[in-house]
């Protein structure tokens, strides 16, 4: 009995150095569980990444991804030198930066503001109503915009006319497209996006506020010196994530809001990829894939850069 105990005791330290295969076999059931999700990731995420090589080929459906002939950087070259290139890049960048600059501070301010509301029913009602538009689908949201901004009988123009102003054809004016896109986004999602900041605010140690009150800090000072630094890490992580997905934010909405009158400012990379690859009569998979890949690579570089900067400046980063 004693010898057995001794043996198990001396055997213990050897466990961490078991061979990888032994370690895998020990948890084989976990591999069975994750097999299906892993298969999904490979089939629907990694095979398309492999398939993205058609960007460097002249893809012919009958020959398949592997059998088509290489074309080098032809398609990238064509895109960069096309007369659409400057316009599309500018639209994509402007729309996304505008969206980030306008869309990011609002949820934060809303959260700070709600945090100082002491009347419970007021806070609950504001939250309830401001979260609600988040559930409106993109299609319905754009449909609502079309109705409310309608130049003949839309609500907004009725209001303008009631004040004696001229009606504006909002959806037909390319100069207004970006503002309409961005501010309707703020209207729809500021409430919902503030939840995460509210959660971060509630995790700030209350004793900080107590100490500040004892020392005579005003509410404004408490917002500035306690609340803001407290939610900064969360804000930075969100900012990094937003930057990473920056180039593909909401192209569904752009596509739906597009009309022949506003394409000058509304054509972005994603809508162009969709049109070139899947809508136009002469479907050009390779060219379209090249533009898509171009965007993916820029997006990836962007997220790495922002992460690096955030890590240097603030010791907060995704990884």
């Amino acid at each position: 009995m004693k010898a057995l105990q001794l043996r198990t005791l001396t055997k213990r330290p050897s466990v961490p150095s078991a061979s990888p295969i032994r370690k895998m076999l020990r948890v084989w059931q976990l591999y069975v569980l994750i097999a299906l999700p892993l298969l999904y990731i490979v089939v629907f995420k990694y095979i398309p990444m492999y398939g993205a090589q058609i960007a460097f080929k002249d893809f012919i459906v009958t020959k398949g991804v592997w059998g088509s002939d290489w074309a080098g950087l032809k398609h990238f070259d064509r895109f960069i030198h096309s007369y659409e290139f400057g316009k599309i890049m500018r639209n994509t960048l402007v729309l996304n930066f505008y969206n980030l600059l306008a869309g990011f501070p609002f949820p934060l301010m809303l959260a700070l503001s709600l945090n100082y509301v002491r009347i419970r029913w007021f806070k609950k009602t504001v939250q309830m109503v401001t979260y609600a538009p988040h559930f409106i689908s993109t299609v319905v949201m754009v449909g609502m915009m079309f109705e409310l901004l309608n130049p003949r009988n839309g609500l907004v123009n009725n209001i303008l006319q009631a004040f004696g102003l001229d009606a504006i054809n909002f959806m037909g004016n390319p100069d207004l497209f970006q503002s309409i896109y961005v501010w309707s986004g703020v209207w729809q999602s500021a409430g919902f996006n503030c939840i995460i900041f509210l959660a971060a605010l509630s995790s700030i140690d209350p004793s900080l506020h107590e100490a500040a009150v004892v020392d005579g800090a005003s509410q404004r000072q408490r917002v500035w010196h306690i609340d803001l630094p407290g939610i900064l890490p969360v804000a930075i992580i969100l900012l990094i994530l937003n930057m990473g997905s920056m180039l593909d934010v909401g192209y569904e909405k752009v596509l739906l809001m597009q009309n022949p009158l506003n394409t000058r400012t509304s054509e972005v990379i994603d809508t162009y990829v969709y049109k070139v690859g899947l809508v136009s009569q002469a479907m050009n998979y390779s060219y379209s894939a090249a533009i898509g890949l171009f965007k993916s690579v820029i997006g990836f570089i962007l997220i790495l850069t922002v992460n690096q900067i955030a890590r240097k400046a603030n010791q907060t980063s995704l990884w």
Binding site: K45, I47, G277, G292, S296
Partner: peptide, 13 residues
């Protein structure tokens, strides 16, 4: 979540 093959390869699969 950070990199994707894009719309067309996703459609082709």
């Amino acid at each position: 979540t950070m990199f994707s093959g894009g719309l067309i390869p996703g459609y082709l699969i």
